[in-house]
Computed example of a mutant assay.
Amino acid sequence: MGTKGIRDPYIFRKQDGKFGIVATDMLGTNWGDTSQYIHYWESEDLINFTERLIKVHNRSNMHAWAPEVFYDESRKQYGIYWAGNTDYNRIYVNYTTDFKTVSDCEVFFDPGYDVIDAHIVSDKGMHYLFFKDERASGKSIKVARSSSLSPKSFSVFTPNFITSANTEGPFVFKDKNSDSWYMYVDLFSSNGNFECWKTNDLNALSWTKVTGISVPQGVRHGSVISVNRWELETAVSRKVVTPPAPTPPPVLKGDVNADGTINSSDITVLKRYLLRRITLTEEMLLNADTNGDGAVNSSDFTLLKRYILRR
């Protein structure tokens, strides 16, 4: 479809739980090529995909590079943001609810100079936009922030670059087991080599470099998404993995009168037994030991009552 080439795939989780992927419509490395479209795929299992092109602008001489997606809760819409060039590259956005019909593009982020490869993460009510400064003096990553996801609301707050020279395609994610945030960046002049940087505060003006990392060979740009065990095993095995049936809860002893049901009659019988008003048969005594501790007493009565009352 389109140019019959893709670059910069970005995967995300939609509000309905499905997976979405957007990517640049570009064949090869002719940076002068343009396209009015981006690629879009959708999947429930990361094996079977539907695909279509999404037209994001109407200009014949502009590209649409490195698209990514956020969900704006205030609008109840997805924002598709990407780098487009007129006199220089800015970050544009289109809004959509279905990835079929999209709004006209508008400028989303423009610090007044050439920028590409925007990536947004949110934390504690603040939104952070990582981007590549494309000027000859830069070619590295800076950060802007905003308390909203509104177009033109982001302001650059890092005075210096937070990664090495010649880095692009930042993607940032939080370690679920700590307060650490990690940022991977593509060393674009080294063909598939990445750097990794770390911080505990997204407002930091400098990050700590992480050593000893590795990524799959030949990877360019990247993204991270959380999946559950079954989604992961399905993707790796390339066949749909059916989750095992949930383990049924243990059978609750409580059919004191052995009539095949557990209801208020069992409470009545157990109460009468504890008050020494009736004698239970051996089977009934076994059923009356509701908590399975080897004795029939008030604890069994309490547990049975709570079970029947669904507490």
Rank of each mutant, 00 (worst) to 15 (best):
I54V: 12
M62D: 03
D72Y: 05
D87V: 11
I80N: 09
W65A: 03
L46T: 10
N48F: 11
G84S: 15
W65F: 11
K100S: 11
V107E: 02
G84K: 08
D110G: 02
T86E: 15
Q77R: 13
P111C: 10
R52M: 09
E51G: 01
P111M: 10
W82L: 15
I54E: 07
S74F: 08
S74N: 14
Y92D: 04
D114L: 03
I116D: 03
F109N: 08
E68I: 00
A64W: 06
V115C: 08
V102T: 12
E51Y: 15
V102R: 04
Y78F: 04
Y113H: 14
A118S: 13
D117C: 05
K55Y: 02
F108K: 03
N58I: 09
V115K: 01
W65L: 12
H119R: 11
G79F: 05
E106I: 09
N48I: 04
R52K: 15
V102F: 06
I54T: 07
E73M: 01
V69G: 04
G112F: 07
V115A: 09
G84I: 03
R59H: 12
P111D: 10
S60L: 13
N58V: 08
E68A: 15
F70V: 15
D110K: 03
F99P: 07
R90Q: 14
N85T: 12
G84P: 01
H119D: 10
C105K: 12
C105R: 09
L46C: 03
W82R: 06
A118I: 01
Y78G: 06
M62G: 00
D72G: 03
Y113A: 08
W65N: 09
W65Y: 12
S74Q: 15
Y95Q: 04
T86I: 14
Q77C: 05
T101D: 13
Y88N: 09
G112S: 07
S74C: 00
G84T: 12
T97A: 13
W82A: 10
Y71K: 03
R59F: 11
T96R: 11
H57L: 04
N94A: 07
S74A: 12
N85C: 11
I54H: 07
S60W: 10
